[in-house]
Amino acid sequence: MIMATGQSLPGQRRWQRVLGTLMIWLTAAMVTLSVLTAGAFLGLLLWFAGSWLTAEGMASGGVLVRFWGNLQQLLFQPSASLGIEAMLPAIIGTVIMIILMTVIVAPLGVLVAVYLSEYAKNTWYTELLRIAIQNLAGVPSVIFGVFGLGFFVYAVGGEIDGWFYAETLPRPTFGTPGLLWASLTLALLTLPVVIVASEEGLARLPTSMREGSYALGATRFETIIRVLLPAAGSSVLTGVILAIARAAGEVAPLMLVGVVKYAPTLPVSLQAPFIAFEQKFMHLGFFIYDVAAHANVGEGRLGLICAAAVLLVGLVMLLNLTAVLLRKRLRDRYQALSEE
C-alpha cells in the first residue's frame, strides 16, 4: 500500500472528526456528572437536616433549627436505646490519626524518594525496590490491616511490652491494637503515593540546578537539604495531600489495628504526653459502618449515615485545604520552576 506522507486520507479525517465529537460528549458527560455529584451532596446535607430528628421527635421549628438541634445531639449525646455513640470523639480520633499518619509518612516518603532519586544507582536492587513500591500501591487495603496486626501489634508491640511494660503483663499495653499502630499501618498504605510524588518532583529539577550548588562548594547533602528539597516541596505536599485523601477513605484495615465502636477516653489530653499512642480510638468511617450495620435507628438510618459522611468529607477537605494553602505559600515564595 502506498501512502503519500503529509497528506491525510479522507478516512483519517473522518476518524478525527468522530474522535472530536466523542471527546466533546465525554467532556459534557463528565461536567454533568460532577454537577450532579455536587447536587447530590447538597441533597444529602438537607436530608440530614430533616430526617433523623423526626425519629427523635423534635420535628418542631424550621429546617435550620432542626439541623442545629440534630447536629448537637449527634455530636455530643450518645443514645443507648438507639445504639449509637456521640460523633465528636470519632471526629477527634479521625483527625488525630490522620495527623499522626502524615507526620510519619511525609519524612519517610521523602527519605525513600531522596534515596531513589539522588543516591541509588540503577541496579537490579533499585529496580526491585521501585517495583515493590508500585506493587504496594496495588495491595488491597485490608491486607495492610492484616500486616499491621501481625507485624506492628503482635511482633513490635509485643516486643515493646516485653521490654518496658513487663510488670503489667500478661495485660498488653502496646501489644494490642491502638492509635500508633493504626497510624503506622495507614502510613505504610500511603507511603507509595508520597514516594512517587516526591521522586517525580526531585527528578523534574534540572541537573543544572544541582551543578549550580556543587559549583559553589556545596556537598551532596547540603544540595539536597538546601536546594533540591525546597524546590521540590510543592510536589512533596501534593503527595501528602493525596495520601491524606487516600487514608481518610480507609476503614477496613483500621478495624484490625485500633479503631473501636466505643472508647471510654479520647486519645488526646491536655496533659503530657498529650497523645495516648497505645489507646484504642473511635473513627468516623467506622461510625458510618456501625450505624449502617448495627444501630437501632429505623427510618433515620440513611439520614444519620449522610450526616456522618458529610462530616467525614468536610474533615478531609479541611485537612486538604491546610496542605493546599501550605503548598500555595511555598509556591508564592519560590515561584514554580519556569518553563523548561
Partner: peptide, 12 residues
C-alpha cells in the same frame, strides 16, 4: 567558581 551556559538560579 563557575557560571553555566543556561542561567540556573535556585528556586529561592
Amino acid at each position: 567558581g563557575m557560571v553555566f551556559q543556561r542561567p540556573n538560579p535556585f528556586a529561592k
